[in-house]
Write a protein that binds this DNA or RNA. Structure first.
Length: 267
DNA sequence: AATAACTGCAACCGCAAACTG
DNA sequence: GCAGTTTGCGGTTGCAGTTAT
């Protein structure tokens, strides 16, 4: 099957996002909803691939994201869920509202792994280190083959069955979280990755006070952007998703061509 | 003060599943 | 059922900031 090239397409920008790009992306998604990532960059006037836009949105720009370090509770939850699910970061993230798989993955690799090792626990098997091989090489191998993990006592409880997964993970959760999950299940395929969890008027723009001391230039720009950004006042997630059909069918009218300069009027 | 080493996070890459015609 | 396309996921990398020397 032919996979289309993504960012290696000539003319597409890579690397850190600028504040302007963030603004374009946020404005576009807030106006038109989240759909058709492939077409989004052109429609939003971005010289990025759809994949890059999706990543930027889900990992950084989504208004429902919590920022800052994971709390003790969240961290413990990640450890428990990892013991059950392994490196299935998206599954783990789905149990932590406002957290992304990338964020959890990074936190695991940079903080929790070390913490567990310090405590004499193998972060991979969640067993005491003395009973497991702690050869870095071996660990690397294991990491890479998480999908075919040799069954440990904990991991052997993992089942692919959704039903069983629900029951095992919900056992770890507090009643509120459990209820939220049940409600989400009732919402016909709703998942935390589908924005928003909140209404536009409830959007809490990450402020300067509790914002993480993120140090990358793009992050700083974006914090600024999000502070300044005026989210449009409309019901974002009603049946206005047919905006997309309009936009897509209107594409020629928008005169957005591959090599043309885009102009976009922001709300 | 300079710079080497370390750390943490955002972003990219490639694969596979899901979807579509 | 098949081929092509899109989306989602997990692993990895690059780089800016921080700390140690």
């Amino acid at each position: 099957m032919g996979r289309q090239p993504c960012c290696d397409k000539v003319g597409l920008k890579k690397g850190p996002w600028s504040a302007e790009e963030d603004q374009k992306l946020v404005n576009f998604i807030l106006t038109n909803g989240q759909c058709c990532w492939r077409a989004l960059p052109k429609l939003a006037g971005l010289l990025r691939c759809g994949k890059s836009c999706r990543l930027r949105w889900t990992n950084y720009l989504r208004p429902d994201l919590k920022r800052g370090l994971l709390s003790e509770d969240e961290e413990q939850m990640v450890i428990d869920l990892h013991a059950q699910l392994g490196n299935r970061w998206s599954k783990i993230a789905s149990h932590l509202p406002g957290r992304t798989d990338n964020e959890i993955k990074n936190h695991w690799n940079t903080h929790i792994k070390k913490k567990l090792k310090k405590m004499g626990i193998d972060p991979l098997t969640h067993m005491p280190l003395s009973t497991t091989t702690s050869e870095p090489q071996q660990e690397q191998k294991m990491d890479k083959s998480t999908k075919e993990l040799p069954e440990t006592s904990l991991q052997s409880t993992i089942t692919e069955s959704k039903e069983e997964e629900k029951s095992t993970t919900s056992a770890l959760l507090d009643p509120t979280t459990e209820m939220m999950m049940m409600l989400m299940d009732d919402m016909d395929g709703f998942c935390t990755d589908e924005v928003p969890l909140i209404e536009p008027h409830e959007i809490l723009v990450p402020g300067t006070n509790d914002a993480p001391s993120s140090t990358t230039s793009s992050s700083c720009d974006s914090s600024k952007l999000l502070e300044e950004l005026q989210f449009p006042d409309f019901d974002l997630w009603d049946d206005d998703f047919n905006h997309w059909e309009d936009l897509l069918s209107d594409r020629p009218k928008l005169a957005i061509g591959d090599d043309e300069e885009y102009s976009w009027t922001f709300i």
